[in-house]
Amino acid sequence: MTADLDHRGAPPGQTRRRPPGQASPHRQAWRSRLYRLDVKGSPYLYIFPFFGLFAVFGLFPLIYTAVISTTSWSPRRPGSEDTSVGLENYQNLLGDENFHNALLNTFGIGLVSTVPQLLLALGIAHLLNYKLRGRLFLRMGVLVPYITSVAAVALIFNQMFARDFGLLNWFLQPFIENPIDWRAEKWSSWLAVSAMVTWHWTGYNALIYLAAMQTVPYELYESASIDGASKWQQFWHVTIPSLRPTIIFTVVVSTIGALQLFAEPFLFDTTRNNNGGSERQFQTVVLYLYQQFWTNGRYGYGAAIAWTLFLVTVVVALANFLLVRRIRSAED
């Protein structure tokens, strides 16, 4: 990048020096050096605020977490922050059934929430793309769940998914014998947490899809309909391929979000030690991290979980990216 700029910047500097009868060559050299410094240096200056902030709030915590993860630091045991245990925390983590369970829950809830969420968003965006009465109002409307705080959403969903006086159990009353204890089983608690996530994020993704849909040239649809394509075929063969970059973006972002899921299971939990259900039915990796770090005071182990999750996220996001990139391969 800088090399490029240098090349591009240097020649004008050279040419400008040529016209005769101006300031002394010494002064010219000084100016040219300043100019070159400007061209070379200022891009760094412009991006510095980001990288400066990133270094303080991104890079440093990342590195420091890695350092902590090699200790057995617990604030409850004085002196333990200096006890190095090497990679023992990671070794223990690999054999930790609770961590395996947390991974399973995270991927499970991620799948149950992300897939319907994106499909729904796609459908909603498609509908909103038609000429409708009060279109702006509707388009803004789908964003309302997104701007609602997760805590408020959790409050309502906790009531809906309550065992004894919950709304859902009241609806299901005629069909089931005993009210469902939503937190008691994996499937039911996953469903409840996923419902919260889906509710929160669908509108946001729908708007992103809608924005992308509006950039699809009208001529494409026109020629498709001349060729006799039905609305559904148009959606499938024109809209979806045109949205490919957007879909990749939403899938990657949703996947990262799903892997870091915390607020919803945290707020759905009624145990006093962030157990994510009496038997960790819906304890996600971040909630497990939180429990080990804060509730149990295991800073070293918690840091090891954080780093492992970071690596898992990178790998999964990459895999996802490669997978979704093939969406259009059928077309080509």
Binding site: R76, R77, D181, R183, A184, T271, R272, N273, N275, S278, E279, T295, N296
Partner: peptide, 19 residues
């Protein structure tokens, strides 16, 4: 040091029996 944690663990475990 971990009395509080242990007490909560038992509460959760008994809740799982209830479930």
């Amino acid at each position: 040091p971990e009395s509080g944690v242990i007490g909560n663990t038992f509460a959760g475990a008994l809740n799982s029996v209830e479930q």
